[in-house]
Amino acid sequence: MDSLADLDARIADCVACPRLVAWRTEVARVKRAAFADRTYWGRPVPGFGPADARLLIVGLAPAAHGGNRTGRMFTGDRSGDVLYQALYDVGLASQPTAVTADDGLELYGVRVTAPVHCAPPANKPTPGERDTCRPWLVQELRLLRPTLRSVVVLGAFGWQAALPAFAEAGWTVPRPRPAFGHGARVHLDASDAPESATGLDLFGCFHVSQRNTFTGRLTPEMLREVLRTAATAAGLP
């Protein structure tokens, strides 16, 4: 795979995890009452954003009635409402809402992805499913590497899932592995020099889940602050 378009197409056809295949398919068949007249995507959800992104946002997995319905990460659910509003507020998105995969939303220098590309039951992938999906994230990081300068990871699950992927994709992860925390910042040096010796700034942020946003654990300003800092580190305006 020598392009993100090829990678995205391959991801969308993946059937590697039987439990996830069964769940995403069943959700797409039964649907939620509010979306009974919609056709669900019901497949693995690839990343979204430009191929020359300087900033990458890593979540957890698509939501059953969000990305699994629309076919685009963080689209069509309340977590996405919070994320895309914040991206718009800091000048990284063309509009504050993400409703469908063809709603005209553009991201500026930012790509959004996840370590698990299928919607999992109860929003909880197993460690085995996480590890099975990791090669997709590794390849995405390798393809983004010429321009990628910073990454925001949403939540502890994504943080732990992403660290091995960074190591496989050509960056050095410190030992012991850095702990997740909101506002955490870690610099990853390139592990292969000299031609690709570009480091990466890694930022931790509480996940934009309803549990966090409804309770105030993650406020819009907290999210905007992390995004601003990461965008500056990436050299985005």
Rank of each mutant, 00 (worst) to 15 (best):
M1K: 02
L7S: 05
R10H: 13
R10L: 15
I11G: 06
D13C: 13
R19C: 09
A22G: 05
W23K: 02
E26H: 09
A33Y: 14
T39I: 13
Y40N: 12
G49E: 11
D52Y: 12
D52N: 14
D52G: 11
A53G: 07
A53H: 06
A61I: 09
G67N: 07
T70I: 14
D77S: 13
D77E: 15
S79R: 12
Y88N: 13
Y88P: 12
G91M: 12
P96S: 07
A98L: 13
T100N: 03
D103P: 11
E106G: 03
T113P: 06
A114V: 05
A114T: 06
P115A: 10
C118K: 01
C118A: 10
N123E: 11
N123M: 13
K124Y: 10
D131P: 02
T132Q: 08
R145W: 11
T147K: 01
L148H: 00
L154E: 04
L154T: 01
G155W: 08
A156D: 10
F157L: 06
Q160P: 00
Q160Y: 03
L163Q: 03
P164Y: 01
A167G: 03
V173K: 00
A179H: 00
G183N: 02
A184C: 00
H187Y: 10
D189K: 05
A193D: 00
A197F: 14
A197N: 11
G204R: 04
Q210D: 14
T213R: 03
F214K: 02
F214A: 05
T215S: 14
G216S: 07
L218F: 03
E221G: 06
T229C: 07
A234E: 10
P237M: 09
P237F: 09
